[in-house]
Nucleic acid binder design. Structure first.
Lengths: 168, 168
DNA sequence: CTAGAAATATTGAGACTTCAACTACTGGGG
DNA sequence: CCCCAGTAGTTGAAGTCTCAATATTTCTAG
């Protein structure tokens, strides 16, 4: 009887799977770099930082607790702390204490941050369109959304109890 | 008569497009981080560095000119220089002068580098399978390959003459 | 009510990336 | 032959990210 074990001969990727995986690595590498460069040039910040401002701009009161913002953007709290520190230095975000939890901090989008967003959003949307949506058929767009949703779902840090299916 | 201009009202993303784009950002962020962590833990290097070794291992003589390696991996020569310096320090890659071009350098996969690859490849393949292939239908896998191919193609630094269509 | 466990957020060090400047070499026109 | 524009690759500084350690506050079992 075969039991799963680390010593098993691994199932290598087929030729076709290798092609797909390589395409994925190439595509994401090029697109990430492209957007980082576009935003660094036009907005003075990398894509992640821009995305943080976008998420804040859509939150109630344009503010979010650090941990929430980290979860919404799929990054670690540590990374977020450094990023917010930089954005604060630029005057685009400000920190505020949370009244109900003395450990908590809000990241708040400033007026200046919002204006920077307004000024640079058109260029960013254009870049995303040109690189992605303008090149894909509606079916491909739909498929991409579903595929990425599945990948993200599988890598999401587990919810409480999610790994205890017998409790559900 | 409307002429294209930077001052035009931009075509914002539709709700559906926003969902797709957000899924893309989330999925790629999570997957990149996941693989970086997996490889950092099991192989002592980030995903890109591992990928450099993989590409070298598949090249004739297990060696490539720096510029070729940079192109195969879609990264800048500068980034590659730093990366190879680190891999050289680990003894996984060695540099060799190019006999026919005194400016040129070969990056050569060492025996140690190859063995590291052999030792860590199963775990990496398993991680890619678990995160990607095991979760997608064959149709989705195929679609992903095509989509990423299109994206990569559109962002590829232009070939000579590619922007001079009247010469083709 | 209190001690310990868990959560929130930050910090600093080291690793990685970017950008621009730089050295060294090549190849083609005058 | 020589000039010089273009190519190959590297470097250092500044910015960003990771990881582990830290301080502080909240929650919870007892």
């Amino acid at each position: 009887m075969k039991t799963p074990s680390a010593a098993e001969e691994p199932r290598w990727l087929t030729e076709e799977e290798q092609r797909i995986w390589l395409a994925y690595v190439h595509g994401t590498t090029l697109l990430d770099d492209h957007l980082d460069r576009q935003l660094q040039r036009d907005a003075g910040m990398p894509h992640l930082y821009y995305h943080l401002l976008v998420v804040l701009s859509g939150a109630p009161q344009r503010r979010l607790r650090m941990t929430e913002l980290a979860m919404h953007t799929k990054i670690t709290r540590s990374r977020l702390s450094h990023a917010i520190a930089r954005l604060e230095k630029n005057g685009w975000v400000r920190r505020e204490d949370c009244p109900s939890d003395k450990r908590g901090q809000f990241a708040v989008l400033t007026e200046g941050g919002f204006q920077t967003l307004e000024k640079t959003a058109p260029g960013h949307v254009a870049a995303v369109r040109q690189a992605l949506f303008d090149r894909l058929s509606p079916e491909q767009q739909k498929a991409l959304g579903e595929i990425m949703g599945i990948i993200a779902e599988g890598l999401q840090p587990k919810e409480a109890g999610a790994d205890l299916p017998w409790l559900r």
